[in-house]
Simulated assay, not measured.
Amino acid sequence: MDKTRALKASVAISPNALRGLPAGRKTLTVTYFSNWDKTEVVIEFREYGSDAKVLTEIISGIISIRIKVNESTYPVPLDFQLKTKKSNTSMSSTVMKETYCSFWDEKTSTFSTSGLSKVKEDDSSISCHSEHTTSFAILLQVTELPTQISHNDYKILDMLTNILSCVSISALLITIGIFMMFRTLRTAERNIIHTNLAVSLLAAQVLFLIGVDLSGNKLTCTIIALTLHYLYLAVFGWMLVEGLDLFYKIVKVYGSEQNRLPIYLGIGWGIPIPIVIVSAGIRFNSYTAISSCWLNMTNGVIWAFAGPACIVILINSVLLVIIGRIIYRSSSAVNNMNNTTGLRASLRGVLILTPLLGSTWIFGLLAIGDAAVIFQYLFVIFSSLQGFFIFMIYCLF
């Protein structure tokens, strides 16, 4: 029999981690508890809306690790492995589960994941890395989804997001490369706006793919969420600039030659800064969701993004209607008042401009109720492919 398989817990500390400790008598104390007797502990992680039913249970024993030099306790980085048990919670197609490395925070009397990351997981055990020494356990979060979106749908949506975002990133790189290659394109005000929108969206999508799941270290995860918050606000800022500039070019022809670029730069890159700073200042310790480096959806932080996004979508939707009417009238006049031709031209113009001005993000707001699955798929497809649509509009049309 392999003795390591019978172990319920193991700890590994690098000699380099101990060299930084002060001189003195060093002692290592490791205690293992089969059960957690703090029955008052209630843990709830809500990520899928306030209607989600969430249960978090401990699926391992508790391992307590203390390193002392003389009589003082010192934190050191270490790796530990805990044997896990199967959950008693029945799983269905509308239930999602996630395991977490956690420690007991004596200051808050609750479990926390700060400073911990999951290294390896199999059917019977989970290995974790910690930046400190304390009491550790493995938690299982079971979430009953509040909508008709099944676990399989979430997996498909996640796969679509990754694949389509890669397509979008490639298209944005080509778009930016084309604008940078030719001086006449690089210096035109309209193309400068296009380039800034492409750059902000490219940075947001790359960071989203790389960092949104790096939730092991709370500080790192919060920094990623802050950066994503800023970048996506910048995307909406530049989409607003696209709408305003198009409005001035088409509707307000007189005076459209004025240099508005400093104002546009302030809207695109400047306005998101105070929004992120204020929201982070108010909710820094609870800024992110528990298992992703994005805004917390249960304590109001998400509205620091959703609020400005809704305002931009509303403004651009109004501008889209006005621009569509102008295209319709102009096309009808050119074609001797042929209403059919004017309507076709107007619809074509609106369809082309819709992804450019961010109107497709409305699908995300409509993803509730019985039609949630349909709108979730539409939202993922159109939002993930926004960079590809930008390439099509800027470089091919």
Rank of each mutant, 00 (worst) to 15 (best):
Y100E: 09
S92K: 05
S292G: 13
L21V: 09
L233S: 10
R344M: 02
L351Y: 14
H132E: 03
T29N: 10
D370N: 14
Y100W: 04
E98C: 00
K120N: 01
G349A: 08
S346V: 00
I58K: 14
V167I: 06
I126W: 02
A137P: 03
K249A: 08
G342N: 08
L265C: 14
N162V: 02
L202T: 06
F363R: 04
I58G: 05
V380N: 04
P272Q: 10
E98Y: 05
T31Y: 01
G358A: 07
T27S: 06
V54N: 06
T288R: 15
N316M: 01
A345M: 12
T73I: 14
S165Q: 12
L164Q: 09
F136G: 11
Y48K: 11
G177F: 03
N339Q: 13
G49Q: 07
Y254C: 12
I390C: 15
I169S: 14
F379P: 10
S93Q: 11
I224E: 04
I43W: 07
V241M: 13
T360C: 09
V199A: 13
G61I: 00
D122L: 00
A306Q: 06
T4M: 06
T73Y: 04
L365H: 09
L365Q: 15
L265I: 12
G61T: 02
T73H: 04
D153A: 07
Y254Q: 05
V253L: 08
